[in-house]
Design a protein around this nucleic acid. Sequence first.
DNA 1: TGAATTTTACTTATTAGTAAGTATATTTGC
DNA 2: GCAAATATACTTACTAATAAGTAAAATTCA
Lengths: 186, 186
Amino acid sequence: MSVTREKIMELGEDLIRTRGYNAFSYQDISSELGIKNAAVHYYFPSKENLGTSIVKTNIQRFEEMIQNMQNRGFDELHQLEIFMKIYVKSNREEKLCIVGSLGPNVESLNEPTRVELKKMTESIVVWLTGILISGREKNIFAFKGEARDRALLILSSLVAGLQLARILDKTDFKVIYQAILEDLRP
Amino acid sequence: MSVTREKIMELGEDLIRTRGYNAFSYQDISSELGIKNAAVHYYFPSKENLGTSIVKTNIQRFEEMIQNMQNRGFDELHQLEIFMKIYVKSNREEKLCIVGSLGPNVESLNEPTRVELKKMTESIVVWLTGILISGREKNIFAFKGEARDRALLILSSLVAGLQLARILDKTDFKVIYQAILEDLRP
DNA sequence: TGAATTTTACTTATTAGTAAGTATATTTGC
DNA sequence: GCAAATATACTTACTAATAAGTAAAATTCA
């Protein structure tokens, strides 16, 4: 695969996660990469196309990560911690996650991007629900109520945790992170 | 105060909370209200100006609400429930809150709007922290750790709860809402 | 050579914003 | 009490900039 194409996707994801989908242009990408905007259109005919590709790649990365963790036989707490580390890294880099950056603008996205965003969010929730269920069975986790409800609560805390940390203080994410783990402790 | 001015602010807030700050234009407002875009500029010289005014009004509304609840002597649980009802209403109307709609785009906002957004978020966190502290003292609430940490966790859940509900399913907000209250029960 | 990649040189549409003008009230001076 | 001055609430008619997107030519690579 083309290195230019990869650079465009990387920068595009970066811009979505820092400024937001509606706050970056092909000009931003082309000038940063030292190419012309038509070159960006060569790889991604439309912005919708670029957005959708970025989300698809993120889904793929997530699927590979959970597959890898399961293959290695990581226990539920270990898996959750690795997943949450992605958010810790995002916070360190002052970026949001894809769900938290595209989500608020879902009404202004094109259908294909919206569909992929929904797929990605659902994938995360399904996986989280799964490890919460098996984790509770093994007494690694303790929580009240339905596992899916708890998964939604945890994901919400992580997603908006990054958002609040950028508004208020970077260090505020850490306390959210710790409270999530604390609340699951048996 | 002018009725047109109020309509502009109302519609502007609506557009921010449904589509996002960078996804609406003065044209959207003027055409919807049956006026010319110059008329919108007459009341709000710049978009930054409109954005800042909208956040300021929201801060004022919030301050009035908590003042009113305190004057009436509502207990901590009652106050929290009234605050959370704002989010339930937002979810019903498929809108985000101001913090959750402007927050993700904080890097693309102008300084004055960013300052007001920070003020608003901080106000909410400070108030929430306060009722969590006095609520725990009275054994109305039970939770582990620092009250401010818990306040951040609750606010995160509400903010991204609305976001996730729009991506996945409207009914998903309800379970987040209930889990928050459940987790605070002594 | 021929296909892939990239630039040149655009178009069309939309954006925020402005300058100048107008009708209708409202206030002020006499 | 009434004319002159002024403020309010807009419209008309623009600008300058930027947005996404495209056709065709030029270049690079294999």
